[in-house]
Amino acid sequence: MRWNFVSDRPIYAQIVESMKLFIAGGELAPGGKVPPVRDLAAEAGVNPNTMQRALAELEREGLLRSNRTSGRYVTDDAAVVEAVRLSLAKAETVRFLGAMEKLGYGRADIARLVENFKAGDDKA
């Protein structure tokens, strides 16, 4: 799992976002075990309390569930995972549309560009 942090936003919020991306993208499989807090904190290079706080928030949102004796798991509720995937996709779309609008592209132009886009087109 890749962790990237920007310096001007809370680390806790960025961990929550990264974890959502890992879950939506399948890097953390539905129903799969989540590594221990200490290991995740070491991997991400962050404070263990901050990691703990982010995981608690993901539990609150229903993406993770914790079992007292055996640790934390990713939800196996496909609808919850799909909802996260869709909300991340929408956020990406908003970003993309914003950038395109700044370049003066309308919706129809954007749709045409996306439709006809082939890999390697950007190098031409």
Binding site: S7, D8, R9, P10, N49, T50
Partner: peptide
Amino acid sequence: KVLDEVFFIREGRIFLSDTVDNIRDVRGMS
């Protein structure tokens, strides 16, 4: 990224202390 909270010290006194995430959240800066 490793710290819970920070204490700023100047001329032998603590003049600011807060959690890292609170500083980032409230001030929008690292």
